[in-house]
Write a protein that binds this DNA or RNA. Sequence first.
DNA 1: ACCTGAACACCGTTCAAGT
DNA 2: ACCTGAACACCGTTCAAGT
Lengths: 211, 211
Amino acid sequence: MSPLVEAALQPRKMPVQARSSVTVEAIAEATIQVLLAVGPDRLTTTRVAKRAGVSVGTLSPYYPNKRALLFSVMEQHLNFVADTVEETCERHHGQALAAMVGAVVRAFLDAKMRRPDVSTALYAVSAELDGPALVARIGNRARVALATMLGTAMDARFEELEFTTQMVYSAMAGTTRTVIEAGASAKMVRALRAELELMCVGYLEKAAARD
Amino acid sequence: MSPLVEAALQPRKMPVQARSSVTVEAIAEATIQVLLAVGPDRLTTTRVAKRAGVSVGTLSPYYPNKRALLFSVMEQHLNFVADTVEETCERHHGQALAAMVGAVVRAFLDAKMRRPDVSTALYAVSAELDGPALVARIGNRARVALATMLGTAMDARFEELEFTTQMVYSAMAGTTRTVIEAGASAKMVRALRAELELMCVGYLEKAAARD
DNA sequence: ACCTGAACACCGTTCAAGT
DNA sequence: ACCTGAACACCGTTCAAGT
């Protein structure tokens, strides 16, 4: 992430009068509504402006370009999730592992699911073309292969094989994605491999014990 | 995913002569090169056509719109990863869990890392605006909170606390993303919560035992 | 059958003029 | 200080004309 790119998403002018604060908020809300109504492709600056009840020209001082509109909406959402996780963590200091994990997982999912339509729309924005659908469709081949293999394990049996496999695959894809987006050095990839093995084995042993 | 959207990414005309097959391949390769050279925002149909040595009008019969260009590149990449995982799975049928997991994790990461520049560019495409950077920056707050909390656990100590935490968070975010993109029913979310707990606890127990 | 490239429609962004 | 909206530049897509 170059600072220049980030800078281009920051407002040129901050609202100083009450009037413009209202405008900025109306534009943000209009962006969400247009996004939900017509989708990311047909979201245009004119449409957002019209929905917010202002002229197109009003957008630029506060949202210097179209991406800034979506960026700010996503930022609000992510901040809400981060807030929720932080608070939950603080409330569980000093407790046992299982209690901590249970609470955090619950809080994280609850935050993501507070407005499922918005969460989904934001993933879609973040996804651009139909990447995720493609990932799901093609990743399915890998998941079927994984499930088939796990079904043959000499030392374990799984009741919920489909779902267990889905979890393993998602954890793999998700953590890898994070590492790649962080700028994947060879060392990081090696470390990731080791940790992912721990995670998958740890999970699968528990899943097999339960079933 | 509506079938209509998918259909709009399929070619209107398939290449029938050797000449046009070469053209189609050249356009796909040009798309990758332009993507790597100027990034997704400045990737234009004209630029791709010029790089491929054809006229803009030549694109449309085979790639009906700009998204189709990026879609086909991503499709190739994902198919390669799926192929690799499938083969590895087949080679490890009947082996012990630990061996299976080790092999698949390795194969998956190797496939993703064969051309790191392309992998990264495709995540960037899939990501549109700077969503991932934002996710990383804000998600960092949650990770710090998690690490701080885990450091206080009454029944475990972690050497590599930072990285361990990163893994837990990535697994949470990654699996959640998958479930959301699959169309998150309330039932699925509940199932996810239970599995994520198993996975996190299983992993953390192993990580604590090692350290 | 395949390719060209000018023409069209549309959208993001700006800025002189207003309140 | 804030907002308007016409004007501009640019890009995706098409299609009549060529080979």
